[in-house]
């Protein structure tokens, strides 16, 4: 469960806060669409939740723990529980697909384990990667070079990586921004379905609202750093 209470994020030197008093409650297995024009603070809000951006005031609780107090190990543990899917499906081109997918496991792996995997992946680990890829429908790309993927495939790999992370929540930042409408809807459908199946909370920022209604439990709109509720959860 993720709770935001009057969260303010102000970048150093900026005149207006990027996020200005946002409050939100997302339950386990629930999906939230965060809509709004670009520059409205969507990315900042998402990054604040897993502490890639520090908050200026207010509180963010993830599973009852206030994120702003976390340091080092505990912070890593928090990030492990929150999978991030970023705007431009930020995969590392040089790596193979399975390496990008298993990057999701880095939170539970030691550094040595991680480096060993780069050189010598074990069969069990590859199976885990293949399973995750199967869930997003591209199991056959396991050993393909990441740079050879299409835009939609890259986004599927990013989702597979999030699944491997076994997160409590997925924070998706404009995951469909650069896809054509048909593909975009496929990805949104995949994301929301997988989240529901696995009981993962999903916060997904979107540029447009078209089909959000069909897939998301809640829809909130962020404009000028302020939140406005468009659709509330049934409960």
């Amino acid at each position: 469960m993720i709770v935001l209470d009057e969260v303010v994020v102000r970048y150093p030197g900026a005149q207006r806060p990027a996020v200005d008093g946002a409050s939100l409650l997302v339950k386990t297995g629930e999906s939230v669409a965060l809509v709004g024009p670009s520059g409205s603070g969507k990315t900042t809000l998402l990054r604040a939740i897993n502490r890639l951006v520090p908050i200026t005031s207010g509180t963010i609780l993830v599973d009852g723990v206030a994120v702003e107090s976390l340091q080092d190990k505990a912070l890593r543990a928090l990030r492990t529980r929150l999978a991030m899917i970023a705007q431009h499906h930020d995969l590392v081109d040089r790596l193979r697909v399975h390496q990008n997918v298993m990057a999701g496991a880095l939170g539970r792996w030691s550094s040595l384990h991680a480096l060993r995997y780069l050189a010598f992946p074990l069969r069990g680990e590859l199976d885990e990667a293949r399973n995750a890829l199967a869930r997003v429908g591209i199991a056959e790309k396991l050993r393909a070079p990441t740079s050879a993927l299409s835009g939609g495939e890259r986004q599927r790999v990013a989702i597979a990586r999030a699944l491997v992370q076994q997160p409590h929540a997925i924070l998706a930042d404009e995951p469909i921004a650069s896809l054509d409408p048909e593909l975009a809807e496929q990805i949104v459908a995949l994301l929301t379905t997988l989240a529901k199946e696995s009981g993962i909370a999903l916060i997904c920022s979107l540029h447009q609202v078209q089909f959000a209604d069909r897939y998301f439990d809640q829809i909130v709109r962020l404009e000028g750093g302020r939140l406005e509720r468009l659709k509330s959860s049934v409960a």
Partner: peptide
């Protein structure tokens, strides 16, 4: 991409490697 790897909770060394 570095941020997205770091965001998985990866250690510094793992981030460097991945």
């Amino acid at each position: 991409p570095v941020l997205s790897i770091a965001a998985t909770g990866a250690s510094k060394l793992s981030t460097v490697g991945f």
